[in-house]
Simulated scan of single mutants.
Amino acid sequence: MAGLSKTHIPSLEQIYSGKVRDVFAVGDDKLLLVATDRISAFDVILGDPIPGKGKVLTALTNFWFEKLKDVIPNHLTGIAPESVVKPEEIDQVSGRAVVSKRLKPILVECVARGYIIGGGWKDYCATGSVCGVKLPAGLRQAEKLPEPIFTPAAKAEVGTHDENISFERVVELYGERIATIIRDTTLKLYKEAADYALTKGIIIADTKFEFGMDDEGNVYLMDEVLTPDSSRFWPADDYEVGTSPKSFDKQFIRDWLESQPWDKTPPAPKVPEDIIEKTADKYREALRRLTGTDIEP
């Protein structure tokens, strides 16, 4: 199965190309979002795609949108992506694209943390807090928190890191109503998803959500949801407090890159075929466990 690194859809105006997604205008009020098989690590897009990755991200996101639709509306329109492109372009969108509402993005990355790991663990070891949220003393690496916490970040320009901010700063940026909605919704989405995932043998350690608004100020869940790109998924049967758990996300390919003589600036090293295959398998295993389905090769 070959990977899709770039899209070529001349029938629509392309308005954005990100680390993974290419975005096209569909009329004045809708967007075509195409999840490619590109993968980034340390903010660098690797030269080798992960075959099927975009289809996994799309299938998982659509699964969660359906499962969590009673918590908050999402950006999906229900329009088939195949219907907005020309016949010769369909193979680039089938199984990996959606047609969404065109919303005004809320430029806050809404992070929910249920376990202490990664940058949060480093923050806690240094300060006893995570992103300014004071936590109990004596927590160990990868330990479950007493309650999930909301740790927002201001979305940065492309190529730079997002900056952790306080809830009070979110209020300053968007007002109390919007700030409260996205905080409370982030925590509710995380709790419901984490409870479900645990029944499938997966711990969701943390995740991030993105929201947008329509012209009337209504808030919608948008972008990707609870995927291995936006979350830390750990196998529950292998979980042990005090260690850095194995994961279903791109940590596997990050670990390989860390072992290379690379200064984390472009271009990235060429990734061996077996590392690409194992990374693709991890993404698909997460999909199979959570949804009971698999992607079409």
Rank of each mutant, 00 (worst) to 15 (best):
V130P: 12
S231G: 05
T291W: 12
A35V: 06
F24T: 02
T291L: 10
T58R: 13
V108W: 12
E216F: 01
D214S: 06
P136M: 05
D263W: 01
K19G: 10
K19W: 10
A154M: 10
Y115C: 10
L173P: 01
I203L: 11
L60T: 02
R254T: 06
G217E: 15
L60H: 03
A35R: 04
P51N: 08
D281S: 09
I295R: 10
T186Q: 13
K53G: 04
V111E: 11
D91C: 03
P148I: 09
E224V: 06
E88V: 00
A112Q: 03
D206M: 02
I39Y: 02
K200R: 15
K122T: 13
G52Q: 04
A179I: 02
E192M: 06
P105D: 14
S259L: 05
V171M: 14
G217P: 13
C110Q: 07
E192D: 15
Q251N: 10
A179C: 11
G132I: 00
H8P: 00
E240N: 05
M1T: 00
A35Y: 05
K264W: 09
E13K: 14
T127D: 11
D281T: 02
E285F: 01
L60E: 10
K69I: 09
R183W: 05
A80G: 01
I295Q: 10
T7L: 11
G18R: 02
R288V: 06
P266D: 14
A205R: 01
S40D: 09
A280L: 06
T279V: 03
I72E: 12
V23H: 11
E296I: 03
L173T: 01
L187G: 02
K188S: 07
I202G: 13
R169F: 00
P146T: 06
I204W: 12
P269A: 11
V34L: 07
T185V: 13
E192G: 00
F209M: 12
P245K: 04
I181C: 08
L4S: 02
Q251A: 06
E143Y: 04
M213C: 08
R21F: 07
P152A: 04
R288L: 11
Y16G: 08
R96P: 07
Y124E: 09
A197H: 13
A25Q: 13
F209H: 09
V71A: 12
Y190I: 01
Y16V: 01
A137N: 14
L60P: 04
L187Q: 12
Q141I: 03
L4Q: 05
Y283L: 06
L139H: 12
V26S: 15
V26T: 07
V20H: 07
D215H: 04
D162K: 04
K86R: 15
S83C: 03
Y16H: 12
G120C: 10
K53C: 05
S166K: 08
V130C: 15
D43I: 00
Y239T: 05
E109K: 07
G95L: 03
K30T: 00
T207C: 10
